[in-house]
């Protein structure tokens, strides 16, 4: 009788443990995500009465959204194009790297993974500033291209503009690709590493050569990794302003540049908040659509 009672009590306690474990996370989210979101939303619907008015007044002003979209339409377009291009490049560069590490890495695996992660030991800003130096008008890349007489042809196909790399689309996309590449490599590596090698034996046994085995077995099984990598790359890249600021010029500003400018330079909080919300909404819609297209809910 007493034993049964005790068992009952421990089961009830067991039932509460998960909630207890969740509490810090839920509190954290409520305090540092939901509350700020609410404040931001309020700000997005507020009006700045005068230039010197720091605290805007709440007034259900939905026009903030439409106005910010129309004012910053080119920045929005650019953000998504840059982020999209950087993501595609990250997949194109990152997948083979992840594949080589996972499949052919052997005992060098951990060393190679370490090399992928090493850039994180330096600050994001420093790394981007270093790229500024590298791509500088009298930096090593342009000098080398000049020395081998490639500057002219590259200028013609638009990879270099008027002998410059800085302040071009190429520089910003390149910077984004460089900065977010590890976020693509790591999830793809994890999904590749999880693949049971016997499945590839089975594919070969069923008359699939190397390429067919990759296309029909390896690739579909790593799509969840590609999906995760895309989220980790595209979302921060779309909201980034560091690369546009240091590697781009006035014609390469992204939506992050706009948010930063409105918030920190012009102190126009309502427009900045509205821009942030629009960006968030578009990204959320995009991610849902992408997940549907990739059919990932089936794979994860």
């Amino acid at each position: 009788m007493a034993a049964a009672d005790q068992g009952d009590r421990s089961r009830r306690r067991g039932g509460l443990v998960p909630y207890a474990l969740l509490t810090p996370g839920v509190l954290w989210l409520a305090l540092f995500f939901l509350v700020p979101m609410f404040t931001l939303f309020r700000t997005a619907l507020s009006v700045k009465e005068s230039r010197f008015d720091l605290e805007p007044t709440f007034s259900w002003r939905w026009a903030n959204f439409t106005e910010s979209i129309s004012t910053y339409s080119s920045q929005f377009t650019r953000s998504f194009l840059y982020a999209g291009a950087a993501t595609v490049l990250c997949i194109a560069i990152g997948y083979p790297i992840a594949y080589v590490i996972a499949v052919r890495g052997g005992r060098w695996r951990n060393v190679l993974l370490g090399l992928v992660v090493i850039p994180f030991f330096t600050s994001y800003l420093i790394r981007t500033l270093a790229w500024q130096t590298v791509l500088n008008d009298d930096g090593p890349v342009l000098s080398l291209l000049d020395a081998v007489n490639l500057l002219g042809p590259l200028d013609q196909i638009g990879l270099v503009q008027n002998g410059r790399l800085l302040a071009t689309n190429v520089a910003v996309i390149g910077g984004l690709t460089y900065n977010f590449l590890p976020f693509m490599i790591l999830p793809i590596y994890v999904s590749l590493e999880k693949i049971d090698l016997r499945l590839l034996d089975a594919a070969r046994d069923l008359y699939a050569n190397g390429w067919q085995g990759f296309r029909r077995v390896t690739l579909p099984l790593t799509l969840p990794g590609v999906f995760a990598g895309t989220l980790l790359t595209f979302i921060p890249a779309a909201g980034d302003f560091v690369n546009a600021k240091f590697l781009g010029g006035p014609n390469q500003t992204m939506i992050g540049t706009g948010v930063q400018d409105r918030f920190l330079v012009q102190l126009d909080y309502p427009t900045a908040a509205a821009l942030s919300f629009v960006l968030m909404a578009i990204i959320t819609a995009g991610v849902l659509l992408y997940a549907r297209l990739l059919g990932t809910e089936d794979l994860i």
Partner: peptide, 19 residues
């Protein structure tokens, strides 16, 4: 190579394609 041999294997853990 195995993909050009007219034999097929039933693997110990079956190795069915999960996707």
């Amino acid at each position: 190579p195995p993909y050009r041999r007219n034999v097929n294997t039933v693997f110990q853990q079956y190795a069915l394609f999960p996707h």
